[in-house]
Design a protein around this nucleic acid. Structure first.
Lengths: 330, 330
DNA sequence: CTGTTAGCGCGTTCAT
DNA sequence: ATGAACGCGCTAACAG
C-alpha cells in the first residue's frame, strides 16, 4: 500500500500539500490539485484511516447497541440512524448484544478506548443497564420514562391508553393483555396506560387477563392459548407489540375464532406486514425511523460538544384503526 | 483522559514498561506489574486503541456484509462469526447492505482504508458482486458453486436433490417448486438439484410448476395462490426456503387444503420455528452457525497470512423429515 | 527486567 | 501556495 509520502514523491511536492489537497482543496492551486489526483489514481493511494483517526482523535464511528438484530422494529430504527450517520460521514457499528450485558460492556468499551465516538442504545433503560458511564457519550433511541441520560422516545403509557380506550369505546369490558416481560420498561409504561384507561372507564383491573410474553411471535401464540382455555374469555386483546399480536391471531384463528367478530385484537409498533395481516391489524405506529434519526442527531450534538442540547425528545405516535377490532358480539 | 505517559510518571517508570505490562506481562517483574496496575486503576487509564491500531497496522475488526439483518438465517450465521471473532479479540462490524451495492462499496472501503482487516460476505456471489477486490481480504460464508474467492458453503444442488428425491420416493410425480429470484445463485444451484432428481426418476421438468418468489414469507403465500388456481394442481411442493414454505402453507390452509393429506410441502433452511409450524416442516437443516464459524476461521487464516489455507469448504446438511410431507392421495 | 530511542502516517502549525 | 518540522500514543528494537 502506498502512503501519502509516495504520492508526494510522485508529484514532487511535500506531504503537506497532498494532505491539504484532500482535506482543504481550496487551499491548493488547481494545477497541484490535478497532478496530485493523477498521482493518487496512479498509485492507487488510499489514506490510512487508522492514522487519520489517531491524528484527529476521532474514530468517526458510532455504535448501536441492539438487543436483537432480527427484530423488525429495531431494523427500522437502525435505518434512521444510518441515514443521519452517513450524511455526517460516520460509520455505524452494529453491536448485536443479544440482551447480554457482557456483550454490551464490550461494545461500550469501544468508546472508552476511542474506537467509537458515541453509543446509541436501543434497549430501554433499566437499573441493570450499563449506561450511563463516564467518558461515554450515549443516547437512548427507544427510551422509557425517567431515562437518566439523553433519550428519544414515545409516550408509551399514553399510546397504550389510546389503544385500550379504543377497545373500551367499542364496547369491550373484558380486555386481555399480552405483555412483554414484566420487568421490561416498555411493558411497565404500557401497562400503566392500559390500567389508566380501565380506571377511567370504571373497569377493574384483572390480573388473570394478563398473559406475559417476550415480544416474539411465538410468545404471542402461546398467550393466545392461555386466553382460549379461559372459561370466561376476553372479547378483545391488546398485545404490546405487533409480532405477538400476529402470533396470537394465528393461534386464535387456528382454534376457529373469527377476528374481529369473535375477538378483537390490537397491536403496537405498526410493522410493515401488520397492514397485510389477515385481518389488517389495528395498532399504534411508532415513528421508528424518526426515533433513529432524532437520536442520531442528538448524539452528534453531544459528540460535537453542544451543551445546549435538550436531553429528552418525546415523538408523537399515530393510532391506526384497521379491521382487527370491532364491537363485541352482543 | 490519561495516557500511557501519565501512568509511567505516576509509577516512576518508562512508558515502555507500562506498555509491556499490558501486552507482555511475563516480561515485567511482579512488583512493577502491581504498581502499574494500581496506577492504571487510580488514573482510570484506558489504552487509546486508535493509537494501538495505528501502531500495529491492524484495526482488529472484521466486517460482515449482510443483505438483510432482519433475516433469521443470517442472524444465526452472524452468531457463529461473532463467536470466533470474539475469541480472537476482534470486533465485528455489521454492514447492513440492504442489497445495495452502493452501501456494500462503502463497507468494503473500510478495509481499503485499514479500518477493518477483512470482510465476510453473506450474499452469494454473482457477477455484479463487489468482491473480490485487490487489497481486500474476503471470504464468503454462504457461497454457491464457482465462487471466485475463498468460500464456505453447503452443496445446494445436492440438498435440493435430496428433498426432491424424498418427495418422489413418497410417490409424488407432480412436484411444484417455489423458487427464489431467478438470478439468485442459490436459486440456480437448488433448481439444478431439483431437475436432477426429476431426471433420475424419469419425470419431465415442467416450467409451469415453478413459481418464482424472493425468499420472503409473502412471496411464498403468493406462490401458493398460483398453485391453487392450477387445474391440475401438484401433489407436493418444494419451497427453496422455510419462510416461503410457511407462507405457502398459510395460503394453502386458508383455501381449505390439508397438509400433508391434500398436498405435501418441504422447505429449506430449518429455521427455529419450522419445527413449530403446523404441521412441522420437512426441511433441510443448513449448519448456519457452523457456516459462520468456519468462514470466520478461514478469514482469520487469511488475515494471518496463512497461504496454505484451503479456499473452499463444503459443509454437510441434514435432511429432516417431519409431518408436512406424506404420500399423495391415491 | 528496564530505559532509551525511534518511528508508524497523517495533519497542522509556522515559516517562506 | 507550499514546505519543513513536529507530535499525536503507542510499541519494538536495542542496549544496559
Amino acid at each position: 500500500m502506498s502512503t501519502i509520502r509516495d504520492v508526494a514523491k510522485e508529484v514532487g511536492c511535500s506531504t503537506a500539500t497532498v494532505s491539504r489537497a484532500l482535506s482543504h482543496p481550496e487551499k491548493v492551486s488547481k494545477a497541484s490539485l490535478k497532478r496530485i489526483h493523477a498521482a493518487i489514481e496512479k498509485l492507487q493511494y488510499r489514506p490510512n484511516m487508522l492514522s487519520q483517526q489517531f491524528r484527529n482523535k476521532q474514530a468517526n464511528t458510532i455504535v448501536i447497541l441492539v438487543p436483537d438484530i432480527a427484530n423488525l422494529f429495531f431494523s427500522t430504527v437502525i435505518s434512521g440512524i444510518e441515514n443521519v450517520a452517513q450524511s455526517k460521514g460516520f460509520n455505524v457499528l452494529l453491536g448485536d448484544t443479544r440482551d447480554s450485558s457482557e456483550r454490551e460492556k464490550n461494545f461500550i468499551k469501544l468508546v472508552e478506548t476511542k474506537q467509537a465516538d458515541g453509543v446509541i442504545q436501543l434497549r430501554p433503560y433499566s437499573k441493570n443497564s450499563m449506561l450511563p458511564k463516564k467518558f461515554v457519550t450515549a443516547v437512548n433511541a427507544c427510551g422509557c420514562e425517567d431515562t437518566p441520560y439523553p433519550a428519544v422516545r414515545i409516550d408509551n403509557a399514553d399510546a397504550a391508553r389510546q389503544v385500550t380506550e379504543h377497545l373500551i369505546s367499542l364496547g369491550h369490558k373484558k380486555i386481555g393483555l399480552i405483555s412483554g416481560l414484566t420487568d421490561n420498561p416498555h411493558t411497565i409504561d404500557r401497562l400503566k396506560g392500559y390500567k389508566q384507561a380501565l380506571a377511567q372507564a370504571g373497569i377493574e383491573f384483572d390480573p388473570a387477563l394478563v398473559a406475559e410474553g417476550d415480544f416474539t411471535l411465538w410468545s404471542g401464540l402461546n398467550a393466545s392459548e392461555h386466553f382460549i382455555r379461559m372459561t370466561d374469555r376476553p372479547t378483545a386483546i391488546f398485545s404490546m407489540n405487533d409480532e405477538m399480536a400476529i402470533g396470537a391471531m394465528k393461534g386464535l384463528k387456528a382454534k376457529g375464532l373469527k377476528i374481529p367478530e369473535d375477538i378483537s385484537i390490537a397491536g403496537f409498533d405498526d410493522l410493515e406486514f401488520s397492514k397485510y395481516s389477515d385481518p389488517p391489524l389495528t395498532t399504534v405506529a411508532q415513528p421508528a425511523e424518526k426515533l433513529g434519526e432524532k437520536s442520531a442527531e442528538l448524539l452528534f450534538q453531544l459528540i460535537d460538544g453542544e451543551t445546549s442540547a435538550q436531553n429528552e425528545y418525546v415523538l408523537p405516535v399515530e393510532f391506526i384503526i384497521r379491521q382487527s377490532t370491532a364491537p363485541p358480539r352482543s
